[in-house]
Amino acid sequence: MRIVKRVAIAALALMAVSGAVQAKEWKNIRVAVEGAFPPFNSVSADGQLEGFDVDIAKAICANLKAECTFTVQDWDGLIPALQAGKFDTIISSMSITDERKKVIDFSRPYYQSPSSFVAPKSAGIKDTSPEGLKGKTIGAQSSTVQATELEEKYKGSDIKLYPTQDEVNLDLVAGRIDLLFVDKLPGLEWLKTADGANYEFVGTDLPTDGVGAAVRKEDSDLRDQISAAILAIKADGTYDKINAKYFPFSIWKE
């Protein structure tokens, strides 16, 4: 066992070294998105990636004069696949959390949106504190800030976690869950659809630390370049244009 461990450590050290050697310019950045989180990232009927995240990623790459190639990866597999080197960055509405920061790094945030509860209009739910939702069934997408929040604080409620947000929405309409807990902006988008017409935001929003581009820990150079690019596209007005295309208000985080 000890030998295996040593080999692994040596391998890791070597990887870190080689990572450092590579640390120069990023001409080609492989970007991953989930592709199932409208209006931030989704696949259109003709197979094209679209949404706020995708536009921001393209603007960042343009600013860095780098070629961007996009990969679609399931939400649950995004961080493992990043660690495994399948792509270089995740620009897919991934909230910055301490738990995630233990294994990966984030650029500065490129937008911020709180977490909100959605319930049927007829339910009359007002109090969304853990006490208020005791005994209720709450759904969320797994591996999200919302899922973690529910897991940690809403011990008295029945928590259901789904692979994608679409499935959470589907089960809210089916009546399997009493409420869902979601990033406010995609929630807003869903309330506008035919399915969402009978639902509303309830209770109080919970703030988050914002959403950033995720990179491997050893790629701190890439992280810094993306952070700089985010500030640059905000300064030259590109960001505001993209923002206006999707939302009538600013979602920028200072």
Binding site: A8, A11, P80, A84
Partner: peptide, 23 residues
Amino acid sequence: VYFGGQIALQRIVGLFSGATVEV
């Protein structure tokens, strides 16, 4: 195989070169 295999392969290749493998 999907997650573990990829991490393991990455480490093995990392022993010999800095290249990233893509499975």
